[in-house]
């Protein structure tokens, strides 16, 4: 026996004390009103309960009170983390910013990766242009050519940009940068001022070209009952080989891009 009776008793007392101090050791009498539990003084009774909890024959663990877990979120806590902006404008903070202010902010904070006109530098994302390329071999998926909602630009710029110092832009600064990006995509004029009030009026041109997953109908043919097992095709030939690998940064870059 590795544990003395005294040690066990001490453990039981400790467990009883914990239960009384509100740390929610599973209560074998879950229906007991809190007021009555309060009156229930720590002592031999409580200790025995704790022992019972630990014993195999005790009340099932489902009796544990989840009510004791978690606590109400305070309004100011919610406000601190509640940064999402939805397509209908819900979540936009008060504020405004002009294309002109946005241009200055963009040149300071964004252009080193995205180019002065959103044309992209290196492998960083292109943000402007690309209209009419989505059916081509090299689609350019920008805010103007691809993104369905302007709200996403606001949300993402504030949430995750500038890369390396995210959550640093004020609402006015974010409005201004979004205004500049809309202007770069020929969606608003140079004298435009974007604000919480006029935001819902900004539509992006590609919105109508998104539709919900339809694979279960459009790809129904992939649910085949009995796939072919023998002589399924004629002579098979290699039609393409992996190009010699370009895993080194100085090598030629294969086609394709991970987003």
């Amino acid at each position: 026996m590795w544990k003395s009776a005294e040690t066990l008793l001490a453990s039981a007392l400790l467990a009883g004390a914990l239960a009384v101090s509100g740390m929610a050791v599973a209560d074998p009498q879950p229906a007991k009103p809190a007021a009555k539990a309060e009156k229930d003084k720590a002592g031999a009774d409580k200790a025995r309960q704790a022992v019972n909890v630990a014993a195999p024959a005790a009340t099932a663990p489902t009796a544990a009170k989840t009510i004791a877990l978690g606590r109400p979120a305070l309004p100011e806590e919610i406000a601190a983390w509640n940064i999402d902006v939805r397509a209908d404008g819900e979540g936009l903070p008060p504020g405004k910013g002009s294309v002109k202010e946005g241009e200055e902010l963009f040149l300071q904070n964004c252009a080193q990766c995205h180019g002065e006109f959103g044309e992209g530098a290196g492998r960083w994302p292109v943000l402007a242009g690309g209209r009419g390329t989505l059916k081509s071999e090299r689609p350019e998926k920008t805010i103007g050519s691809f993104w369905p909602y302007a709200s996403t630009v606001y949300d993402y710029v504030h949430r995750a940009m500038p890369f390396g110092s995210n959550l640093s832009l004020s609402p006015d600064q974010t409005y201004a940068i979004v205004a500049y990006l809309l202007n770069l995509n020929d969606l608003v004029a140079e004298d435009y001022v974007l604000s919480k009030d006029n935001f819902p009026k900004v539509d992006l041109p590609n919105e109508a070209n998104f539709y919900d997953d339809d694979r279960e109908t459009s790809e129904k043919a992939f649910w085949k009952k009995n796939p072919c097992m023998k002589d399924c095709s004629g002579e098979v030939h290699v039609t393409a080989r992996a190009q010699i690998l370009n895993v080194t940064p100085d090598g030629d870059q294969p086609k394709g891009n991970l987003e």
Binding site: D84, T152, A160, F210
Partner: peptide
């Protein structure tokens, strides 16, 4: 919410 990772990406 139409976030970036479910629209642009």
């Amino acid at each position: 919410w139409q976030q970036r990772e479910e629209t642009s990406k």
